[in-house]
Simulated assay, not measured.
Amino acid sequence: MSTEFNLTRLGQFIKRQLYMNISSMWIAIAAIVGVLLVISALVAVFNPDAVYNLVPLYLVVLFLGGFIFTSRVFNEMHSPQKSYAFLTLPVSAVEKVVGALLIVAPVYLITAMAGIFMLSFLSTMVAGQTANLPELTDSTFIRTIGSFLVVQTFFFVGATAFKGNNFLKTLLALFLIALVIGAYSAGLGYLLFGGNEYRAQPGTELKGTMEFIFKEVVPFLFWFVLGPFLMVVSYFKLKERQV
C-alpha cells in the first residue's frame, strides 16, 4: 500500500466516509436540532428575555455532539463485518487521518454552527426580540471553538485506539489521567509545602516560575502542541491496525 499523500485518493476517501456516515449524522443532527428547537420555542414564549442565554446551551450541545461524532469516525474499522474492507482501502494511514479530521472538524463544525445561527435567529424572532446572533469575531467565541478543536483530538485518538464504546472509554481515560495528574500535583505540593516538620514558603523566584509555567508554557502547549501531538498518536495507532 502506498504511503504517499495523494489528493485524489484523499478526496475519494472523504466522499466514501461521508457516504458511509452521512445518513446517521444527519439523523442525529435532525433529532438534536428538533429537541433544541422545542426548548428554544418554550423559552421564547414563556421567558422571552432569556433567549439570549440559549447560546451557551447550543455550544454545550455542539461540544458533546462533536465529541461523540469524532469518537465514531472510525467505527467501521472496529466492526468485524466491515473492518477488513476499511483497512484494505488503497489509502495510506496519513490520508485516512487527514480525511477523517476534515470530516469531524470543518464538515461537522460548519453544520453545527449553521444550526446554532438558525436556532438563535428563530428563538429571537419568536420572542419578538432583536436578533442577536453569535459574533464570529468575538474573542470568547473564537476561543470556545478553538478549545473544541483541540479537545476533540482526544476523542480522535479514542476513535483509533478503542474498540466499541469509544466515547465512554475516552471519557474514562481522560478521567483517570486527570486523577493521576491531580494526585501527583497534590502529593508534590504536600511534600513541598505541607509537611508536618517543615513548611517551606514559596519564594519570589518559585512564584515567578510557576506563574510563567501556567500563564505562558501551559497555554502554548495546549493551543499549539497538544492537538498536533494527539493527531500524530492517532496516525501511529491507525498505522498499527493497517499493518
Rank of each mutant, 00 (worst) to 15 (best):
V33E: 13
A161E: 03
E95P: 03
L136R: 10
I29S: 07
V60D: 07
R16C: 03
K215M: 09
A85F: 10
V73D: 07
S92V: 05
F13C: 01
V232R: 02
F74V: 01
V243T: 09
A159I: 08
E205D: 09
V94E: 05
R72F: 11
T3L: 14
L172C: 11
N132P: 04
V225M: 09
L172D: 06
L89W: 01
Y190K: 09
K215I: 01
G146S: 12
F220H: 08
S24W: 08
E211C: 02
E211F: 08
M1V: 08
Y58K: 09
V233Y: 08
L18T: 08
G146H: 03
K96A: 01
Q12N: 09
L89T: 05
S24R: 15
Y52H: 10
V218Y: 12
L188S: 11
G65K: 10
A105W: 15
N75G: 13
N165S: 13
A50D: 05
L89M: 15
F162Q: 00
L221H: 03
L18N: 08
G182W: 15
S92T: 06
N6L: 03
V98Y: 10
A159K: 08
A41K: 04
V233L: 10
G66Y: 04
L230Y: 13
A183N: 04
L119C: 12
R9C: 06
L136D: 11
L230W: 14
A173V: 09
T3D: 12
F193Q: 11
N166T: 09
I213H: 07
V98F: 10
A183I: 05
E240W: 02
V61G: 03
T144K: 01
I68Y: 01
T130W: 02
F220S: 11
L149T: 12
R199N: 13
K15F: 05
S83K: 06
K15I: 02
